[in-house]
Amino acid sequence: MTEVPNSVPFLDLASVNAVHQHEYEIAWKTVLQHQCFVGGPEVEKFEEGFAAYCDATSCVGVANGTDALELILTGLGIGRGDEVIVPANTFIATAEAVCAVGARPRFVDVLRDTLLIDPDAVAAAVTPDTAAVIAVHLFGQMADLDGLTAVCRRHGLALIEDASQAHGARLHGRRAGSVGVAAAFSFYPGKNLGALGDGGAVVTGDTTLADRIRMRANHGRAAVNRHRHDQRGCNSRLDTLQAAMLIPKLAELDSANLARRRAMERYRRQLPCWCQPLAVAPMAESVHHLAVVWTPDRDAVIEKLDGAGIGWGVHYPIPCHVQPAYRDFTEFLPVAEIAAKHILSLPMYPTITDAQVDRVCDVLCELAS
């Protein structure tokens, strides 16, 4: 296939990871020397560093972000007979984790300007069976935790953060992962803090909950006797190698997020008026995991981008509540359903250059003319 001149990839992991190649090589050699591939010293070092970064007390490294959500729900005793409120506009893993513990997801709509969960919709959806609300910090921006906290306190509900797309984000000065009873993070390679494979973590200020989650994630094994299993557990642990690769990236995460913010600001200045980026709420500091825009005719925009060799994504073309696997929970949620037909994600990564952003904007401006 002939490469289009001045092409721009949607995500350039090669350039992102090249920044840390030397540190990766050292980490790889170190792990090969000590041979502790599961539960090695790098895991504890990363957990301590990431907990501190998130202004939390504890971090438990797990296999992936979906497991992190499921382990939080199980650790809180949420299961069959319970309802958990989730936004319809999220990756399917949020609802998947709820169903995995035997609970029922209650989908609610999102706000038009940010596409984040609507606290008023949450308040209207509470029933006697509601046990928790999952606030998804989507596209790099934290949900309205003040509004959601008020609802949860009023009804005695657990507030869980799904921060898988918001490593380092802030709202009113507070980090993602420091507000709810616990937060789930994913370290999937394309995330702001991405591993070289799958990985995830639970972050919490509740040490008792952290201990319970750590035990369950390690086959229910007792901390004092590895041959005794005090609960029915599972196998969900962050590999030593992945932890070793995450440590240097964590040290540079704020700088990488700043580069994303600068790229997004450049997009805002140069995109045509018909191509409207999502809003950033007052007092919010987004880390722009994705550069999401509203388009009047997405198919036409995609055709133009394809012709120019510019990558793109759609997050998410089918909202959770209308997915075939979740038809039992179907409701009419207009904002999420309209957004699914019109939003588009433009190239975004910390190593994207000014020239690449300019190229994307120039191509879109040609479509407008």
Rank of each mutant, 00 (worst) to 15 (best):
Y53V: 10
C54S: 15
D55T: 12
A56P: 03
A56N: 01
T57Q: 10
T57C: 13
T57E: 13
S58Y: 04
S58H: 12
C59H: 05
C59K: 07
C59E: 09
C59L: 11
V60T: 03
V60C: 05
V60F: 04
V60K: 00
G61Y: 02
V62N: 11
A63W: 08
A63V: 13
A63L: 14
N64R: 14
N64A: 15
N64G: 15
N64H: 15
G65K: 11
G65P: 13
G65N: 10
G65D: 10
G65S: 11
T66F: 12
T66I: 09
D67T: 09
A68Q: 03
A68I: 04
A68L: 03
A68N: 04
A68D: 03
L69I: 12
L69Y: 10
L71W: 05
L71C: 09
I72M: 14
I72N: 07
L73G: 02
L73N: 00
L73F: 01
T74C: 12
G75C: 06
G75H: 00
G75V: 02
G75L: 01
G77H: 10
G77C: 13
I78H: 05
G79V: 02
G79S: 06
G81T: 12
G81W: 11
G81E: 09
G81H: 08
D82W: 00
E83M: 05
E83T: 04
E83A: 05
V84T: 07
V84E: 08
V86A: 11
V86T: 11
V86M: 07
P87N: 07
P87S: 10
P87L: 06
A88C: 10
N89Q: 10
N89L: 13
N89K: 10
T90M: 14
T90S: 15
F91P: 02
F91N: 05
F91G: 09
I92W: 03
I92C: 04
I92M: 06
I92G: 01
A93K: 00
T94L: 15
T94V: 15
T94N: 15
E96M: 09
E96P: 00
A97K: 01
A97D: 03
